[in-house]
Every structure is written in C-alpha cells, then in structure tokens.
C-alpha cells in the first residue's frame, strides 16, 4: 500500500465538526487519513495539542473552526488564528514544513468543503512524505 499519512484534525463542535458530520450524512467520500478530535471551540486548541500530535506521529495537523465572525462563542476562532500564526513560525524554526499545520474555516453547512479539504490536505501531506518528528524525538543520539 502506498504511504498513508496520519493526519490529526481538531474541529470545533458547532461549525466544523457539524460540517464534517454533514459530509457523512451526505455520503460524500474522502480520504481516510484525517482523524478528528472534537473540541467545543477552535479557541480551545492550543499549541501543546498540535506539538503533541506531531510528537505522537502525525504527519499533518489540520485545524478547523467557524468562519471569522461566525464563532459560536463570538471570538474563539480569532484566538485560534493568532495562535496558529505564532505556532507556524515556531514549527518552521523547528524544521517542520509549514504545510504540516493548516488552519481552515469550515461552517456547519460546508460538508462538501470539508470533504474536499480532507482530500486535498491528505494529498499535500502525501507529497511532503512522512514527518520525522516522532522518529527524531524517540531516539536520543
């Protein structure tokens, strides 16, 4: 079997997780690589989670929240956005390609967009190949 990347996706409950559910109820098909973790708001997602995911073997991390202005909790997604940019700068400093972490806005009605995103993101991670974080961190030399 060809290289199957592991992608951890953090989804907010109200928009993105519902959007991902909609992709399911609409029987859209997408790559099986994306593994979803539900949080109530994208504002709950913190750098520790993302770094942990890489540490445990994720090849990519996909964060999805409500569109700007549509956050169920008003502004949680903006907090997420700010953290995302700082985290991007940090992971690149640590030698990770910026494509390994991605943030997209998916509304509750965007099942199709979620399915397309999952496919497209999986492809882009496949192109990058396996992420070496776990391997590097596990062996002290």
């Amino acid at each position: 079997m060809s290289y199957q990347p592991k992608i951890v996706s953090f989804l907010c409950n109200w928009c993105s997780y519902t959007g991902a559910d909609l992709a399911g109820t609409s029987r859209m098909k997408y790559a099986p690589n994306v593994r979803i973790i539900r949080v109530m708001c994208s504002g709950r997602i913190e750098p520790t989670f993302v770094l942990k995911a890489f540490r445990e073997g994720a090849d990519g991390v996909l964060i999805c929240g409500c569109h700007p202005g549509d956050c169920h909790y008003h502004e949680g997604n903006y907090k997420c956005l700010r953290r995302y940019y700082l985290l991007q700068k940090y992971i690149q400093q640590m030698g990770l390609k910026k494509e390994r972490l991605r943030l997209e806005w998916i509304s509750a009605s965007e099942g199709k967009q979620f399915a397309e995103l999952a496919d497209e993101y999986t492809e882009s991670i496949k192109e990058l190949g396996p992420c070496k974080v776990k391997e590097v961190m596990e062996v002290l030399t």
């Binding site: 399911g24 029987r27 859209m28 098909k29 997408y30």
Partner: peptide, 17 residues
C-alpha cells in the same frame, strides 16, 4: 467515537475504514 458520519459513511475501503 464517531465511526458513522466521520468514518463508515465517508470512506470506500473497508480495511482503511
């Protein structure tokens, strides 16, 4: 664990799902 909307309904390969 959501294995219907986010798994069985969206995938086509039984092994992968």
């Amino acid at each position: 664990a959501n294995i219907r909307e986010q798994d069985s309904w969206v995938h086509t390969d039984r092994k992968e799902a």
